[in-house]
Design a protein around this nucleic acid. Structure first.
Lengths: 202, 202
DNA sequence: CAATTGTCGATTGTTAACATTTTAGATAGG
DNA sequence: CCTATCTAAAATGTTAACAATCGACAATTG
């Protein structure tokens, strides 16, 4: 039997695309989104689009007003940004502490793959892909530790934080930081990993 | 001109009712929810129901599987519960720190109203209403400090925490704890308020 | 007899038309 | 000239019918 081919639901794809557009800054804050236009763009009807808009609103990327549609949320003010960083660090440290000794060779291989994607994207200066790989790396750990439950808590926070990083493309030591985390995890040095993690979240 | 009559959107009402059912334990974990049945119960079509189910899924009260509908989520395991408490304390302390000197007489009057609702509900042993008033009290502060943005971050956490409190009806000093918080806020003693708040979140 | 395949029922995903609300522009009046 | 009200267009909220998917059980085949 062949490896299962991943089926990605329509809504998921639309959501992914819109998130990407928002985080990359292509869709600027306060841009109003029209359901009909989006439906046309993705070649589906308004139903699935509505679903996605609802989801992204819950994630904090969009804001909705009754009977007035949705628009792209504005960036966080500095104090909120700080709070988000704080919370995100708490969640991620919690995750790797729960992961102590739990990661298998397969997990490490997976993380290496993501890291490679990160490096390639960085070398190719495809910052959209850098962001995706970055998030994937962290999400893998979060998911391993707490499953969907924890990912659900963590995801909106990351997305919201990323909205503030528009155009200030990632620093060049982004790859190194993630490698440091991975190496520490491989060596089962949780405290080192936690420190590296906190340094990476900013 | 007459006083504006508060219009509560259909979806909001449905969401509120379902949240209430879930938190009260009327809808037990792992209960599967059928869109058609819910639509019938609320006298609307499946559209709005779907919207609500999506929202509650994002809030963590429900879990969805592709093409298989949604069911009520199970309670948090203890370590996650602890993490949630931690994060919620961080958010709420952040909120009242940002509120220092910002609350007006009108705010205090509003909070007094909520406190009265809390007391009445408690005396009448209507624990569902107790929970609502309790949440309203905290939400009022969160909203005053950080608006929708902060409420959005905070709300799912509270809801998820409350799922663990089923049937262990609130302790009798619930009212006193909130009064203590309010009095400290009135006196503008933020540190005292923060301590009282942390004691109340558990 | 076991395992795979095919069919049926039920439920979700999607669509397109209809109803309601909001917004913007024009028009009339002060 | 400004303001207020009305009207029309566009956008969202809602509905009901249609299509696709999943689970279970029965039938077929080796």
């Amino acid at each position: 039997m062949r490896e299962a081919t991943k089926i990605i639901p329509v809504r998921e794809q639309i959501a992914e695309q819109l998130r990407s557009d928002i985080i990359s800054g292509e869709l600027a804050p306060n841009t109003k989104l029209n359901e009909q236009q989006l439906a046309g763009r993705f070649g589906v009807s308004r139903g699935p689009v509505r679903d996605v808009l609802l989801q992204l609103t819950k994630e904090g990327l969009l804001v909705a007003k009754n009977n007035c549609g949705v628009s792209v949320n504005s960036v966080l003010d500095p104090s909120m940004q700080e709070l988000m960083i704080d919370i995100r660090r708490k969640i991620e440290v919690f995750a790797i502490q729960g992961l102590k000794g739990k990661l298998t060779e397969m997990d490490f291989a997976e993380l290496e793959d993501i890291l490679e994607r990160l490096k390639d994207a960085f070398d190719a200066k495809e910052f959209n892909e850098v962001t995706k790989a970055d998030i994937d790396f962290h999400r893998y750990l979060i998911n391993a530790a707490g499953g969907d439950e924890l990912v659900n808590l963590w995801h909106p926070i990351v997305l919201r934080m990323r909205m503030n990083y528009k155009r200030i493309s990632q620093p060049k030591d982004c790859v190194d930081e993630h490698r440091a985390i991975l190496e520490a995890l491989k060596a089962n040095k949780i405290n080192v990993a936690a420190t590296a993690l906190k340094a990476n979240i900013k």
